Amino acid sequence: MTQQPFMGRGAIDLSALKRPAPQQAPGAPSAEGGGGMAGAAGSSYAVAVDDQNFQSVLQASTTAPVVLVFHSPSQAPDSSQMAEDVADLVGQYDGRFLAGLIDVDASPQIAQVIAQASQMPQLPVPLLMVFLDGRPAIQPIPGLVSREELSTLFNQLGQQLTAQGITGRHQPLAGGPAEDDADEEPGPDPRYAPAEDALAAGDIDLAVGEFQKLVDANPADAEAAAGLAMAKILQRTQGVDLNQARAAAAAAPDDVDAQIMVADLDLLGGHVEDAFARLVELVRRTSDKDRDRAREHLVSLFAAVGNEDPRVLKGRQALASALF
């Protein structure tokens, strides 16, 4: 059984927080202007979070990922700019993400609940967390993150969502610019629908074929290329036992097939740098056709992760060093 790239520790206990008003549906704006889900920072996919609407924001992660940004104008003024960057960037993904902006000065109780659930003595600020199905989807990211790094993160998460068949999207929130002209409201790109539907149905072979059509039609389509690369990894690793694969690779360190299989499983499990390092070392040890296979496969993993990812840039440098 393959590992999944999204991993969480468990649902967050919200019992210490206020419940939203019973008549207020998730996503509906509050009549009093607070506790609702109106767009924040000029984005249709961002919301200012407080004690009253936190539960409904977290509940929205059952549809698609929710990105929480904890910031503090008093403790870390630059963190508020990071929150604004996240709000702006998620708007470019047509509902794949919802940003929840939490001012810990105004809502310290939320920070306490998250710190306790994450087993942290104190919540660092700023802090970025991604939730899916009410659970942390990736390890929390503390400290300031540049706009460029945030963009890379969202691109990578978007690729993983596509590869895993997670196709849900948030609806634009009240008060955001998408409501100014409903006719121009962005929606899911229909080109990817057949491949995403195939992944959601567990038909990996069909998904590979659909992504291949997109790449053949437009080789410059980076999202389609990444989707194809990830779908092929899923195809190769179907039904593979991770422990057995690791044992086989350890017993035959120069067996290209065995090393490639573990690298694929590592990448799916979120151990991207380990996957790259394994194949870089394989390139370093092998020669001729074996070396070419290891190199070509590593390049395909670069495509799956995304060429703008800092880990890919480091991986390319390591590959160049191993080759020359």
Rank of each mutant, 00 (worst) to 15 (best):
G315T: 00
E185G: 13
S30D: 09
A322C: 04
P253I: 04
F211G: 00
G95A: 07
V47E: 09
G176T: 09
H71V: 09
S30K: 07
V130F: 02
V305G: 07
D51A: 13
A83D: 10
L144Y: 04
H271Y: 02
D105C: 05
L206S: 13
Q238D: 05
A21F: 14
L144W: 02
P219E: 00
F131N: 06
A231Q: 02
A83P: 06
P77T: 02
V90D: 10
Q119E: 13
R293Y: 09
Q24L: 14
S43H: 11
A31H: 11
A46G: 10
M7Q: 15
P73G: 05
A247W: 07
A28D: 14
M1G: 03
Q212R: 11
L199Y: 09
M37G: 12
T237G: 04
A178M: 12
Q81L: 13
E308Y: 00
D103Y: 04
L98R: 11
A178L: 11
V280G: 02
Y93S: 10
V125I: 09
D189G: 08
F54Y: 15
Q139S: 05
Q59R: 12
L234A: 08
G176A: 10
Y93G: 09
D257P: 10
D50N: 15
A247P: 03
P124D: 08
D85G: 10
E148N: 08
D105I: 09
Q4W: 09
A46P: 02
G202S: 08
N307L: 13
V240T: 10
A229F: 06
L298Y: 04
D266T: 08
D85H: 11
S300M: 03
A41K: 01
Q139I: 06
A275L: 03
